[in-house]
Structure formats: C-alpha cells, structure tokens
Design a protein around this nucleic acid. Structure first.
Length: 888
RNA sequence: GGGCGGUUAGCUCAGGGGUAGAGCACCGGUUUUACACACCGGCUGUCACAGGUUCAAAUCCUGUACCGCCCACCA
C-alpha cells in the first residue's frame, strides 16, 4: 500500500479512480450541503461522433475550475449533457442510409427517427466514456439531452409563450436555403467564402424601338426570375429610361425600369436586374415597388418550371448553358473576373440559395435589447473582455431568427393547421380537433437545434417547473466555451434566459481559444494534422494532456499544440511520480496519519524556506486562477515543483532523511505536509496521478471525506491557502546565498571539466561577517551539493596560477584546480564576463549622469539604479584585478 | 468593405515603461541506489519595420508590411 509502481501506468490508474469518484459521489452537487453554490453547465457536445481536441480543451479548463472550487469548499454543480444537433445528426444518418442505397424517404419519418435514436445511443456512449477518460468531474446524476421529455416541454413552453407575445411569427420570406440538406438555414448557419467568379454584362433589349440596357450580374441563371431592372433615381444616364419596358431575353417577359436608391451607380453599368425571389436586396426592392416574385430555382437547387427551357437543369449547369446561349445571340457584352462572397452551408458546404419559402421566425429585437442591457449593466462579464464588443456588435445588428427546419430530427414545431377552416393553433400539447370540427395536422418542420440549446441553463434544471436546483444554481456562476459559438449559443442563452428567467444565465463567460496544430495551422482531415485526444491520452495519459492544454491556454490566443510541450509535461508527470516514490521511501509503514508540522523554530532553514515558498505559491495560484490565467497557474506549479521543490528542497533534505531518528521524523513531517499541499494544488490540473499518490500517503482521517462517507478522496480535500506564519524572508535570503555559491562552484567544475566524483576545495575571500557566518552554519549543504571537501574563509589568499577565481556577489570564490587551469582560457572567460559587466555599467552610468533621469524618474528607481551601479562597479574592480593578476 | 488578434532565442510560447524569460532543441559533463521521461553546467535574441510620446519603449501612440480570425444584402 505504501508503495508506488516503478512507472506511472495511466492506463490502469485513470479508470480506477474515475470509477471510484463516481462510486463515492465525489462530483455530485448537493443543494442541502449548506456550502455556497458554484454552478456551470457543460456546453453540450453534439451527440454525433466523438470528441475532438476542442472539446478536450473546453472540458479541461472548466474541470480545473470545478475541481478547484470543489476543493475550496463550494457546492459545485457542473451539469453535463449532449445536444441532438439537428442537421448534423440527420446528415450523418442520411449518409449511412445513402451507403445502403436508401434515402430517409424510403424509411418514412417514424422509422427514420428510430434509426437516428439507435445511432444516438451508441454515439452518446462514446462521448460519455471519452469524458470520463479526460477526467471531467461532471455530475452525471444530472445529465441531460436536448430531446429529453422535460427539455422538450421547455421548448414547447417557450415557443408557445413567444408566439402568444407576438415574438414568433410565420411568413413567406427570402431565406437561406441549403439545396442538399433541403432545409432553411439561419443567417449564422451560412458561411461566406471569398470566391473567384465572373461578372457577366448582359444586354436587355428595349420593348419599344432599338437599343439595349446592359446589366451586370454574377448569377446570370437568376435572370430568368427577373421582374424589373433598377437604376439610381439621380443617375443622369438612365433618367429618361425610368418607366420604360425592357424585354427579358429567353423568357420574353416585359420588365419595367424602376428607380431605387439602393442601386449604386458606380457598380457595373449602374443598371441592375431585379430578382425578388433569389436575392435579399432584390426581395426588399421588390416589396418597395410591388414587383412579382418568380422562383426559378426549386428546393433541390434545380431550375423550376418557370425557368423556361432550363426547367429541370441543375442551377450551375443552367448558368453555363444560359451564358452560352446568350453569347450565341450576341446578348453578352463582356465578362469580367470578379471576386465576391458566396454563402455555403455550414454543415455540408453546399452553395446556399436564397429562396422564397414559408418559415417560422423569432422577432429578435426585443430579446436582443435585454441581452445588450444585461451586459452593459455588468450582469454578465466576458473574459477576455474584448469579446464584449463582438457580442455587442452582433446583438445590435441582429436580424430575425429563422427557426424552422425542414428536417425530421428535432423538436417538432407545436403548431397545428386546420384543413377545414385554415386556423393555426399553437399549443403545448396536441389538440384533438379544430373548433370548427375539422381535422388538424401538425406542422411537419422541426426547430433549429440552437432553439433548444438556448434554454440549456434552465431547461436542464427542471424549468418550467420551479425546482430546488433551479432556485439554487440559476444563474450559473460561469460559462466556459469556445468563441465559435458565441452567437449560436451564448447570445441565444442570454436572450432566452433573460426573457424567461428574468436573469442572465451566467455571471461570467470565459471564452477559450481554438486548438491548432503545432505550427498554428487549423486542424483538418484534409491536411492530415488532426490530433485525436483519445489517442493522445492513450499515449501520454490524460494528466499530461490536460496539463499541456492548461499551460498553453493563454487568453485570447489560439493554441498551438506543440509536440515539445506535450513531451515536457509528460515528463513532468513522470517527475511528480518519481519524487513521490522517493518521498514514500521514507514514510514508515506504521505511520497511519500525516503528522503535524513541528514548531518552526525547531526546523532547519531549508524547511522554513520551502514552507514559505509553498505558501507564496498558494497565493499566486489564487490570483492566477481568479483571473482565469490557467497558463500562469500551470507554469508556477511546474516551476515550483521541479526547480524548487525537487531540485533544491528534496536534494537538501536528503541527509536529514537518512540521518538520526529525531531529525528524520521532523523532516518527514514537513516533507509530508509539503507533498500533500503540492498534490492538492496540482490536483485540479492532473487529477488522476495526484489521487493515486495522495491515496498512498498517510492522511488525516478528516481530510477529503467522500460524500457517501465510505472513504477519502483528494477531490474533496481542501485546496491549500497561504499560511502567513510561514513567511520567512530570512530563509529566502539564506537559500539564495547558498544557491549562488553552489552554482558558482558547479559552473567552475563544469568549465574546467572536473568530474562529479572528484571532490575539490574552495576558499571564500572577502565575505562580510554575516555572510561568512551563514555559509559556515550551512557549510555541509554547500560542500555536498557542490562536491567540495572543505571551504576555507580567508581574507588573504595567496596567488596561484592553479586557482580559478570567481566573483560571487560581493566576495570572491577561489577554487584551486591543480593541473587543469589554462591561463589563456581563463583570461578569455574573465574578459568576456568583464566586458558584459562594463557594458551594463556604462548604461547605468549614462542614466545616472542624466539630469533629467535624476529629477524625473521615480526616486526608488534612481536609488535602485545607484545601488546596482555600485555593486556592478565592485564586481568590475574585482574582475579587473583578477585579470591583471592573470596577465602578470 | 468593416472589426479584432498576432509578429520576442532554431521551434512552440510567456512577459508588457527601468535595459528580456520558460519548455523543447543544441553543446559539454555525469550509472550521485526517486527519476536517463534524470542530474549538473553552458550557448542563443538590433523583442517585424518606420516614425512619435517619455528621463527611459520590446512594452504606450501612429503608420507600414506580412500572417491569422470574425463580421458584411453591393448586383
């Protein structure tokens, strides 16, 4: 039991502890606990597929927070769940069907839905097991799915409520349409890409008499749906033309020339074809001028029956054929290269078609107004702050939200239509018959996936019922999510939360960065640079992976997942493991309980130094984590553990550990206290390895009691806080002195190739009494770590060509090295040091002789500069002296 | 077309008015019984460029270049 295996076997250890944590209820929120609440919801991953590296980051960061807050004594609720992900999931299953040569229509709606449910179950299992591998400390007892009965009830309640308030309406408008997914999309689901295309100049002949008007268009195929040509009212060139009629080529329809201020006289020819059924601007213009709307492209992206000879052609093919035909008839004046933004379907990449159709919309402005005000009033804070502006801009320029989707997978719209009387009924539960007696049929569309995710912070807690969870945990304390869903999700939660709960859904939003490959490239299957988090965890363990993510998570910067960093942190875990094994070597089997720290005055300076440092670290961690600087926290932990605790403290206490019983027991008591503290501080970042080690150490029975009372767990042990009594600046100063001397000797040894096994001597010359005394008291530490037999303290050291002299602080260190010292080489070294110092000193002197500096700079700075200049001057003198003697 | 971020050691990145850091890589040395995924020591930079503010700029301001991201109804 008091033993750790030779190597840390994460594959065996990780699952063991996760299962234990679940068994003892380590992650359960407890409204009855009497502790202050701290709540977060997990951005529900799409139930389709598996977790990618971005999910890993967006679970690691909140997990660090959740574990930290839990250890600080908060009643933490971190609520998990998954999203049914309408289009995404339906597409996956449709692709599976396509592979079997079937479409969803072959199955019918019910069978198709059943099929999706089957897939979702399997996929859900994958996702949740991946979350457990990563160590996410979510409360599984409160897991939710957006299609759960209660969440669906919430969706219906919200829909009906907004409808009755006049904030949801149905109507026929131009919406973005994906011809492949065969559904309407919201503006957000359309991704614009700069595309190289052509600008076609096409001649439209006058109906009466000769001549043509040339219009420019990037989409000639839509001309078949033209119902006017527009010019700017002030455009002199076309003044006489307004009101005249043109003849639409191919179709032969007569088009009026209208005047509209929207037209930019500078672009193209200043005359623009108007296609109200296929262009958002033309749609608006059509309404202003009461133009007919002719749809020439149908829901599959083919030309409709109104497209004349091109009916049935694919829209892209029709473009080519039409241009060829126009050219043949001399109706194309010219074609220019033209770059413009083309909308693509976010889910399948198909070019989106603006298309006239009847859809449901949310009248968004009233909701957006509240969401804007809430952030302006500071009820929700963005971290980093600059996201506030992005949120505000979007919220200010927001358009009505198209929420109906022509899909089968999702929340069916709770609207029923009567065939007999044309009545529309919007109700939470299905009505039987219409008041007129006619049969009702439910709207066949489903809602945008984000409509239900927008309710997530309260629907998951039982809303519309008034539940204890809802009362206690809403608003949530913090939301941690990626920036790519600020509009999709964060903004919608703000609007809907404020509308239905009269309060913001979260007090703060921490926006994480995108994870890229090690050269900052976006990960993409095509590039073959996708890193699978599960594979990575299998290779290096969840802890190393998590620590890397946290360490690289600088706010506002994308993360380059560098191989070097991953390696370094894997080695860090290994280091922690081995230090812990070393500690355990000295813990007697009979020691059941971690002993108290002995009185400070009985402790050697090295212990007092480390206690001081561990207290300071706790303070630094508090600050860093409070500011969401996970990178800073990780960096401090890394440096503290490796380069202070392991490299110096552990090395320095070895003699005590191997010495007399009384000394040893005191050392072990401090060591165990420190090790316990550092494990707890590390735990939020690297939960598995810390629990494994913590469990092997003797604990106090009251520490980290599991909620079910069956055992102990570090997840419930208090997070270390600063200990003011441990403050000890004198110990810090002493250690700094010892380190300086030891390092100086080591450097000399290394420079002159003295093998580590070969013991040498050293002489300290010219140290003041206090310094010399301190060194004398701790001489054994210096001699052991520097590989010395003795250190002499002399005021006058005889000159010897075999002695290397170094300046340490304000004294000199003489290291006799018979036979190895080369005078020339030594001269070169000292010269190099000297020239560096001279340069630095000149800079300082220049400042000090500058009247402006002396009169304007902060007096403290002036004082420090003087002090430094003086010190450096002394060093310079000493070095010059050494050099002179070398030369003689 | 608007907006935002970046440019610091060979690589990946911190820092952010007082003269530059980490990890990896590199060089040299070590079987010091916790760790070679280790230990000890060392090397490395006109902090993108040009102006400005300041006693002092890698750090603040302006502009330029390049890289990246977001938003956008000019055909």
């Amino acid at each position: 039991m008091r033993e750790l295996s030779k190597v840390f076997d994460h594959a065996a250890v990780d699952p063991k502890w996760y299962a234990y944590w679940e068994k003892v209820g380590a992650f359960l929120a407890d409204p009855e606990s009497g502790r202050p609440p701290f709540s977060m919801v997990l951005p529900p991953p799409n139930v389709t597929g598996w977790l990618h590296i971005g999910h890993a980051l967006n679970q690691t960061i909140p997990d660090v927070v959740a574990r930290w807050k839990r250890m600080q004594g908060f009643d933490v609720l971190w609520l998990p769940g998954t999203d049914h992900a309408g289009i995404a999931t339906q597409n996956v299953v449709e692709q599976q069907l396509a592979a079997e040569g079937k479409s969803r229509h072959d199955l019918g709606r019910e069978a198709f839905e059943a099929r999706v449910w089957k897939w979702v179950e399997r996929s859900h299992g994958t996702i949740t097991s991946q979350m457990r591998k990563l160590g996410s400390s979510v409360d599984w007892s409160r897991e939710r799915f957006t299609l759960d009965e209660n969440l669906s009830r919430a969706v219906r309640r919200v829909f009906v409520s907004l409808y009755s308030e006049g904030l949801i309406y149905r109507g026929t408008y131009l919406v973005s349409w994906c011809p492949r997914c065969r559904t309407a999309l919201s503006d957000l689901e359309v991704e614009h890409q700069q595309t190289r295309g052509s600008l076609y100049y096409i001649r439209y002949p006058h109906v009466d008499g000769d001549g043509v008007v040339v219009v420019a268009t990037t989409r000639p195929e839509t001309m078949l749906g033209d119902t006017a040509v527009a010019v700017h009212p002030d455009d002199e060139r076309y003044r006489t033309l307004v009101g005249k009629m043109l003849r639409l080529p191919v179709i032969g329809r007569e088009l009026p020339v209208i005047a509209d201020r929207f037209v930019d006289p500078e672009f193209g020819t200043g005359a623009v074809k108007v296609t109200p059924a296929h262009d958002p601007n033309d749609f608006e213009m059509g309404r202003r001028h009461d133009l007919a709307q002719v749809s020439v492209i149908d829901e599959d992206g083919r030309m409709s029956k109104d497209a004349g000879p091109y009916a049935g052609h694919d829209r892209m093919a029709a473009r080519k054929a039409l241009v060829a035909a126009l050219e043949a008839n001399g109706l194309v004046e010219r074609v220019e290269d033209h770059e413009h933004a083309v909308g693509h379907c976010q889910r399948c990449g198909t070019v989106v078609e603006p298309r006239l159709s009847t859809q449901w919309f949310v009248r968004i402005k009233p909701l957006a107004a509240r969401a804007l005000a809430a952030v302006a009033d500071g009820h929700t804070r963005f971290v980093p702050e600059n996201w506030t502006k992005i949120y505000n801009d979007w919220m200010t320029n927001i358009h009505d939200w198209c929420i109906s989707r022509q899909l089968w997978w999702g929340h069916r719209i709770p609207a029923w239509y009567c065939d007999a009387c044309d009545e529309t009924m919007v109700t939470e539960s299905a009505p039987n018959v219409c008041a007129c007696g006619g049969t009702l049929r439910q709207d066949t569309d489903v809602l945008d996936t984000w409509f239900s995710s927008g309710l997530w912070p309260f629907s998951t807690m039982g809303w519309p019922d008034d539940t204890p969870d809802l009362r206690r945990y809403y608003p949530t304390t913090l939301l941690i999510t990626a920036h790519d869903i600020i509009f999709f999700w964060v903004a919608r939660m703000m609007m809907l939360g404020l509308w239905f709960k009269q309060d913001v859904p979260f007090r703060a939003v921490y926006i994480t960065s995108l994870v890229r490959d090690e050269h900052g490239q976006k990960m993409a299957k095509m590039k073959g640079n996708v890193v699978d988090p599960v594979e990575l965890m299998e290779k290096i363990g969840a802890d190393a992976f998590r620590f890397t993510l946290a360490a690289l998570a600088s706010p506002g910067m994308d993360i380059s997942l560098s191989e070097g960093r991953l390696q370094a942190y894997r080695q860090f875990i290994n280091k922690i493991w081995n230090v812990s094994r070393f500690v355990l070597l000295y813990v007697p089997e009979t020691l059941a309980t971690r002993p108290a720290v002995p009185p400070l005055e009985t402790l050697d300076v090295i212990h007092r130094w480390m206690l001081h440092r561990s207290s300071a670290l706790a303070r630094e961690l508090d600050t860093a984590l409070d500011e969401y600087r996970f990178d800073v926290a990780a960096d401090r932990l890394y440096h503290f553990f490796w380069h202070e605790y392991a490299d110096w403290y552990i090395e320095l206490i070895k003699p005590e550990l191997q010495g007399a019983a009384a000394t040893r027991d005191r050392a072990i008591a401090v060591l165990l206290e420190l090790h316990d503290r550092v494990l707890r501080m590390l735990h939020p970042f690297i939960p598995f390895v810390t629990e494994e080690i913590w469990q092997a150490l003797p604990q106090r029975p009251e520490d980290g009691r599991a909620p079910d009372g069956s055992g102990q767990t570090i997840t419930r042990a208090p997070f270390p806080t600063p200990v003011p009594e441990w403050t000890d600046d004198e110990a810090v100063a002493t250690l700094r002195l010892l380190q300086d001397v030891i390092t100086a000797v080591r450097t000399v040894r290394s420079e002159w190739g003295v093998p580590p096994a070969q013991k040498i001597t050293a002489v300290v010359q010219g140290a003041d009494t206090a310094t010399a005394d301190t060194l004398r008291v701790h001489l054994s530490k210096v001699t052991r770590l520097a590989g010395l037999t003795t250190v002499d303290f002399l005021d006058d050291v005889p000159r010897s060509p075999d002695t290397v002299r170094r300046v340490v602080r304000d004294f000199e260190l003489h290291v006799p090295l018979a036979g190895v010292v080369d005078r020339e080489k030594e001269t070169e070294r000292v010269t190099r040091k000297l020239s560096k110092i001279v340069k630095q000193r000149r800079g300082l002197q220049a400042r000090l002789s500058n009247e402006a500096f002396l009169s304007r700079a902060d007096p403290d700075v002036v004082r420090d500069t003087r002090e430094l200049e003086r010190e450096i001057g002394q060093r310079q003198e000493k070095l010059e002296h050494i050099l002179a003697e070398l030369a003689s």
